[in-house]
Computed example of a mutant assay.
Amino acid sequence: MVNYNGTILTLAKSQLSIQNRGYKYGDALFETLKVVNGKIFFWEDHYFRLMSSMRIMRMDIPMSFTMEFLEDEINKTLFANDLLQSSARLRINVDRGEGGLYLPSDNAKIGYNISAEPLENPFYSIDTNASCVVDLYKDYYIAPGLLSGLKSNNKAIQIIGSIYAKENDFDNCLLLNTNKSVVEALNGNLFLVKDGHIKTPPLEEGCLKGVMRKQILALLAEDVNITVEEAPISPFELQKADELFVTNVIKGIVPITKYRKKHYTSDFAQTLINKLNAKLRLQS
């Protein structure tokens, strides 16, 4: 069941028009949420990122789009899919409806839809037996700047990068910007660990303004024994690192196990994910 502008519909009846601007031009934004027993992880951060992204895209935000309204719509969707008492992956899409060419005919005509599917794990974990082999994806590059960090429906690089990874038996790929700096992975933000020093690309490099990235930076700031730096990462630094890991809201932290000839440990990532789960338990 899908929530289409506040109405619960079956998937068959919820099909978007081919005139929808999200389909025609990628004129849409989305948020991917993790929900456990009706509790939305980091809901405030997701909500404000969505509102900020809508402003950047010059969408007229409806007065009804309060945090409480959207949370009610999320719970309505979970209830319709019998997921209120379990773990779920949920996606909110916001678009500008129909009309116009590149210039919208009605900038205030904002629509939304919400879909949900079950997730296995309520909390985050690292499978120490799992591999995550990566390489650089160099066919196309991300433009530096905050526009690249939006969760928009224009994900061409991530799509063809994922196909490239599958064709070459990689589990993921690392993306570069036009300055040839490493920006992020296909599905999350990148962190580099070297001798107790943690590094992640700044938002200005073109990386996603990740909600989990924000949580990890906050956890790292609490530890006086490590230093954290938001700075560009050169491809040459990857093979010198002790650990590399990718973060996103659904999986939490995914350690990279191999890049080219370099193998990595995951001890720091495991410690960090334990802290993340402890924080979530305190908030639940």
Rank of each mutant, 00 (worst) to 15 (best):
L175G: 01
L282C: 03
L70Q: 10
N172P: 01
D95K: 07
S17K: 06
V133I: 14
G111R: 11
L147D: 02
T257E: 09
F48L: 13
P232H: 02
M54S: 08
E230R: 08
F42N: 12
S181D: 14
R55A: 04
D95F: 07
L136P: 07
L238Q: 06
G149P: 01
T178G: 06
T271N: 14
T227M: 01
Q158D: 09
K166N: 12
A80W: 13
R260H: 12
G111S: 11
K109F: 07
Y141M: 02
Y47V: 01
Q270D: 12
A231C: 04
S234G: 00
T200A: 03
V133A: 01
A116Y: 08
Q158A: 06
I110H: 10
S52P: 00
R260P: 00
S266A: 13
A143D: 12
C207H: 05
T128Y: 08
Q19H: 14
E222R: 12
E68W: 00
F42R: 11
A278R: 14
F245C: 03
D82I: 05
R49K: 12
T265L: 09
K275P: 04
F65W: 14
K251D: 14
D171C: 03
F69K: 04
E167Q: 15
S125M: 10
E44K: 15
F191R: 11
V254T: 15
K109Q: 13
L101H: 05
L146F: 11
I216C: 00
R49M: 06
T66M: 02
L33M: 15
E237N: 06
D127C: 08
H263V: 05
P202V: 04
I126E: 07
E44T: 13
N81R: 10
I8K: 08
K214D: 09
V36C: 07
T200Q: 07
T32W: 06
D45R: 13
L90E: 02
A156G: 04
L29F: 11
D223A: 01
K13E: 15
F245V: 02
A165L: 07
V134W: 03
Y102N: 03
V228W: 06
K279D: 14
D139C: 07
F48P: 00
K76V: 01
I8A: 05
I226G: 00
A88Q: 07
T247E: 09
D27N: 05
P235D: 09
S125W: 10
L186W: 09
G252H: 10
I74M: 12
P62H: 08
G38I: 09
I142F: 04
E243C: 04
I233T: 05
L150T: 01
K151P: 03
D135A: 14
Y25I: 03
K13R: 12
T271F: 09
L190E: 09
A218W: 12
D82Q: 14
N153F: 08
Q215E: 14
G6N: 02
L280T: 03
L150M: 10
K199R: 15
G111A: 02
M63C: 00
G100N: 10
G22M: 09
L192V: 15
V246P: 02
D45T: 08
F268E: 07
K151C: 03
E243H: 09
S234A: 03
K166H: 10
L78W: 06
K138Y: 02
Y102S: 00
D242M: 06
L146Q: 10
G196I: 02
K261W: 12
L29P: 09
